Computed example of a mutant assay.
Amino acid sequence: MELSNGSLHYPSLLHMEFGPLSDFLDENDTNSTAGEQNVVGCVQIHVPQELFLALGLISLVENILVILAIMKNRNLHSPMYYFICCLAVSDMLVSVSNVVETVFMLLHDHGLLDVHPGMLRHLDNVIDVMICSSVVSSLSFLCTIAADRYVTIFYALRYHSIMTTQRAIAIIVVVWLASVASSILFIVYHTDNAVIVCLVTFFCITLVFNAVLYLHMFVLAHVHSRRIVAFHKNRRQSTSMKGAITLTILLGVFILCWGPFFLHLILILACPTSPFCNCFFRNFNLFLILIICNSLIDPLIYAYRSHELRKTLQELILCSFCLGA
């Protein structure tokens, strides 16, 4: 966490100390003013620390409300909503790490905090593990939800025997254990380019996996629905497709928000010393804002696409206002 240069956000995310890039950043202050240009004509946009803090707090509150709503409403106690709840927890990890990091940064900048560098390094490692766990678990749960919708649509009559609550819980435990374990390994070996290769490869594999499932679902769902005659089963089919569309939107938002970050990682491998790539690197804080926006937008998608969840969220918000009054 390079507090000394006033830019905590850059090196903390997965350490971002990958060879020439870190050397470049050490020679150039990453906290320039808006519109400042470097020697190769790059424009670096300044992102206020207060914006990071505000977005992080809003995202944190939103995801906590989603988790509480799913816990409160028994109608939402199903495997798909358990996975969505875990996706909200993944988003919450980004929010928590951002808020903690920004608070430390602001306190240090205002001379209210003076801590030992060793303590900052430990805190930096914890934040990095949280963020890395968030991206790995988010990708994993997006795949899990896609698989759940696939089973719901194409194996509707056997869904409850295939996706039991016990099996869903087992999947959740495995995903979280794998995410945390891999994140710790990534942070320990963060100086190795193999870490970047693994992250980018995992990102690409999950995108291909989801694309194949969604393509199959949307192409064959109409044919499959003809085999279901009973009204209540037709209704179930419609609900399943609505869930698939919701997860398609979630995946699209994830790609848009996390895409620049993964492009950043690819460029670190492809052209770490190129002036043009360095122009891209200098606006890393903008990519962090997009990542935080992903955790802020996801709860809005849940609420918009699910009437039951939206209704429960409204009740929670009204109750909190009543208690506050």
Rank of each mutant, 00 (worst) to 15 (best):
E2T: 06
S4P: 01
N5H: 02
L8Y: 03
P11S: 13
S12I: 12
S12P: 12
L14D: 07
H15E: 13
M16E: 03
F24Y: 06
F24G: 09
D26P: 10
N28A: 11
N31G: 09
S32E: 15
S32D: 05
V40L: 03
C42V: 06
I45A: 14
P48G: 04
F52Y: 13
L57G: 06
I58H: 08
V61K: 06
L68P: 04
A69Q: 08
I70Q: 02
K72N: 09
N73G: 02
N73C: 03
R74S: 00
N75R: 10
N75I: 08
L76S: 03
L76P: 10
L76C: 08
H77E: 05
P79H: 12
P79D: 07
Y82V: 09
V89P: 14
S95L: 08
S95G: 09
N98D: 14
N98A: 11
E101Y: 00
T102A: 10
G111M: 10
L112I: 09
P117H: 08
P117W: 12
P117R: 07
M119A: 04
L120C: 06
N125W: 09
N125F: 08
I127H: 08
V129R: 09
M130H: 05
C132K: 04
S140T: 05
T144C: 03
I145M: 13
R149T: 15
V151M: 02
R158F: 08
S161M: 11
I162Q: 10
T164Q: 14
Q166F: 14
I169F: 14
I171N: 10
V173Q: 07
S179M: 02
V180L: 02
A181W: 07
L185D: 05
L185S: 11
V188S: 01
Y189T: 00
T191D: 11
V195M: 07
L199Q: 15
F203R: 15
F203A: 07
I205L: 15
T206C: 15
L207M: 12
H216C: 02
F218S: 01
L220M: 00
V223N: 03
F231M: 01
K233I: 09
N234E: 04
R236T: 09
T239S: 00
S240E: 07
M241C: 00
L247Q: 11
L247E: 06
T248W: 05
I249D: 03
L250P: 02
G252E: 08
G252D: 01
V253G: 03
L256S: 06
W258F: 14
G259T: 00
F261S: 11
I268S: 01
I268A: 12
C271T: 03
T273N: 14
S274Q: 07
P275E: 05
R282E: 07
R282P: 05
L286I: 11
F287D: 01
L288T: 08
I289E: 11
I291D: 01
I292M: 04
L296R: 05
I297Q: 01
P299I: 00
Y302M: 02
Y302S: 09
A303K: 06
R305V: 10
R305G: 01
E308A: 02
R310K: 14
Q314C: 14
E315K: 11
C319V: 04
S320W: 15
